[in-house]
Simulated scan of single mutants.
Amino acid sequence: MTVVAGSLVTIVPVIATVPILPPFGLLMLLTWRLLARFALRPWAAAPLGFLDDLLSGQPLGSAVLLWSLCYMAIDLIERRMILRDFWQDWLIASGAILFCLAGGRVLALPVGAPVDGALLVQAGSTILLFPLAARLVAWIDRKRGLA
């Protein structure tokens, strides 16, 4: 539900001169995958990405592809690194965020579109919000375990 809620943030009418709203759905998906490995099934990235595509206006299938690729890459990283700490999770999430935003830019916009500055600001703000998302996911996971 938190991934869906994060994707729903894109439909809130926000007036901005530069579109730098972070992709909260992606942020929540990555946070759940990195902090609570078994909370989401491996196939969950595809339908959640489809829902995000429907809500955000990206071309259909872009988040499905990019989120699924991130999920598989994180699985490969986990097979190599048995123990991780928060800084490594933050680095992995940063790489996945940059990959998804750059991939979404390639899939959605013409190559000559001047959006690279806004994309960098959006990526930076999303990466800086990862610790806050991690606290939220840890709190929800702790409350979920008590119920």
Results as ranks from 00 to 15, higher is better:
147 A>M: 07
108 A>H: 08
74 I>C: 03
70 C>E: 02
16 A>T: 12
21 L>T: 15
134 A>Q: 02
54 L>P: 00
128 L>I: 03
3 V>I: 15
11 I>C: 05
76 L>V: 05
132 L>S: 09
78 E>R: 03
110 P>N: 11
109 L>F: 14
105 R>P: 04
1 M>C: 03
72 M>P: 00
60 L>K: 04
20 I>K: 00
113 A>G: 00
104 G>E: 04
103 G>K: 02
12 V>I: 15
8 L>E: 09
3 V>M: 02
26 L>H: 02
119 L>D: 09
117 G>K: 03
43 W>A: 13
147 A>G: 13
112 G>F: 06
95 G>F: 03
82 I>Y: 06
126 T>V: 07
43 W>S: 14
140 I>W: 12
68 S>P: 11
65 L>V: 07
71 Y>N: 11
36 A>E: 12
111 V>S: 12
103 G>D: 07
145 G>S: 15
113 A>T: 08
23 P>S: 13
59 P>K: 06
131 P>G: 07
39 A>M: 02
121 V>Y: 12
61 G>R: 04
144 R>F: 10
108 A>F: 07
73 A>R: 04
70 C>W: 00
99 F>N: 10
22 P>A: 13
21 L>S: 12
109 L>A: 03
31 T>V: 05
66 L>H: 01
19 P>Q: 13
52 D>L: 04
64 V>G: 08
44 A>K: 04
55 L>Q: 10
144 R>A: 15
80 R>H: 11
61 G>Y: 04
51 L>W: 01
83 L>M: 11
82 I>S: 10
128 L>S: 05
20 I>P: 09
133 A>R: 11
1 M>W: 01
23 P>T: 10
67 W>A: 12
7 S>K: 10
36 A>I: 10
88 Q>M: 12
90 W>M: 02
112 G>R: 08
77 I>A: 04
100 C>L: 07
109 L>I: 05
31 T>L: 02
71 Y>Q: 13
143 K>D: 10
111 V>M: 15
69 L>V: 15
91 L>V: 14
28 M>P: 08
24 F>D: 04
73 A>T: 05
85 D>L: 00
38 F>D: 15
45 A>Q: 08
4 V>F: 13
47 P>Y: 08
57 G>P: 01
45 A>K: 00
83 L>W: 06
31 T>C: 02
57 G>N: 09
98 L>R: 01
123 A>L: 02
52 D>H: 07
134 A>G: 01
25 G>Y: 03
93 A>Y: 01
130 F>P: 06
42 P>K: 14
